[in-house]
Simulated scan of single mutants.
Amino acid sequence: MAKKKRFRNPLKSIRESSSHAPEPSVPEPTIPDPSIPEPTEAETQPSKVDQDSTHKWPVKAIDEEHNIIKTLKLRAKEIHDVPDGLRIIVDFDEHYRPVGNAAGLLASVCGIVATNSTLFPICYEKWPALPESYFKEQWRSLFNLRFYFKVHEDYVKRYLMQSINRKWREHRIKLWDEFNDPALSKTEIINNVPEGVSLDHWALFVEYRFKPETQEQCKRNKENKAKQLIPHTCGAKSVARRRHELQLETGKSVGRGPMWNLIHKRKDGRYVNDKAKEIGYHGPEHSGRVRGLGLGAVPTVAFKHTTTRLSGMNFGSSDAGSSSTYLEKKVENIQSQMQALMAFVCSNQGGNVPQELSAFFTNSTQQAPDGDGGSGMPNGSNPNSNLEDA
């Protein structure tokens, strides 16, 4: 995988350098070629993406052909250098979120592909507007090829989509913050193309940013962000990874309450502010999210109440006993309805059931639920039901 390039605006770098330099005694030189700008102090400092891509992650990989587990130390940018036949093992917790060092490596790889404007172009106005083919190609050629996931692929894809989506949006914001210049016209900004981005894609992105509705939305987003008064102290490590490490250290399950306290307290034990102490992990949840569990956790899984709809009936997994009793009552009700219908048909057919209906009535009235709620009945373990309701 090619090294992730940091996006720096050469024109801005030159202006910043000249603003701090003493006034020259000779005429200022012309602007140099943007393709070879003189690096500034800020440019020599590694970005977060660069730090992640250069960090060596100790991970385990499986050789499926020989059924051998190997230990590797791997940088995110070296993911394509893994020998063929080896796949990085990624563990998941009970909320279907990746944990361990492999989760850190996976998140770093997501960051590299999300900020690659060839793999995920910036020219689309919103993430849902990106054709699904972009993600499918990365799933086929990268994630499914280089990683061994211990859960159903639907859960994996949901996490990857969320992770890449977030990083893609953040990358576009940073890119615009770096290259937007009120002193330049729209045409001048378009002509100042970032490295690694095609001129056509950059022009479409700039046009989108200059739309009045986009600027209004950005203003609202800025106002909403200012209302977010509860910072966390989790850093770059995901909540799922920190929770997993804490559970390994203590040997106990860690709930949402302790996790909220952990990621909203300083080292001295004080909350980051009074608001964090007041709210805790209580209160209404954002749609599709679970407070205190981080990216990837959804209510249908976190609250152990995944729901699948079948002919107007809901089957929940929050309580296996109550679910089984509920199903038994439903089946009994259906059986009684079928018997009444059979009696009605017989009375209108002179006591005889038509041949084409006899097998249907026999199968319908003889079915009885098993101890687990009936074989073939959908349950909360189906990842597709979680994806639909998430």
Score class of each variant (00 low, 15 high):
M1N: 14
E23G: 07
T30R: 05
E41Y: 13
Q51E: 14
H55T: 13
D63V: 13
E65L: 15
N67F: 15
I69W: 12
T71L: 14
K73I: 06
A76M: 05
E78N: 13
D81Q: 08
D91W: 13
R97G: 04
P98D: 09
G100E: 02
L105D: 02
A107K: 01
F120H: 04
P121M: 07
P128S: 06
Y134P: 02
R140M: 04
R146T: 06
F147I: 04
D154C: 09
M161Q: 04
S163I: 03
R169E: 12
H171F: 15
E195D: 14
L199P: 12
K211S: 07
E223Q: 13
K227R: 14
A236K: 13
R243L: 14
R243V: 10
R243Y: 13
V254R: 01
P258A: 04
P258V: 03
P258K: 02
R270C: 14
H286D: 09
L293E: 04
L295W: 03
V298P: 02
P299N: 01
P299W: 00
A302D: 02
N314T: 08
G321S: 14
S323V: 06
Y326S: 15
L327E: 03
Q337N: 08
Q339W: 11
M342C: 06
F344W: 14
F344P: 02
S347V: 10
A359I: 11
F360C: 11
F360T: 15
Q366S: 13
P369F: 10
G380C: 12
N384V: 09
E388G: 06
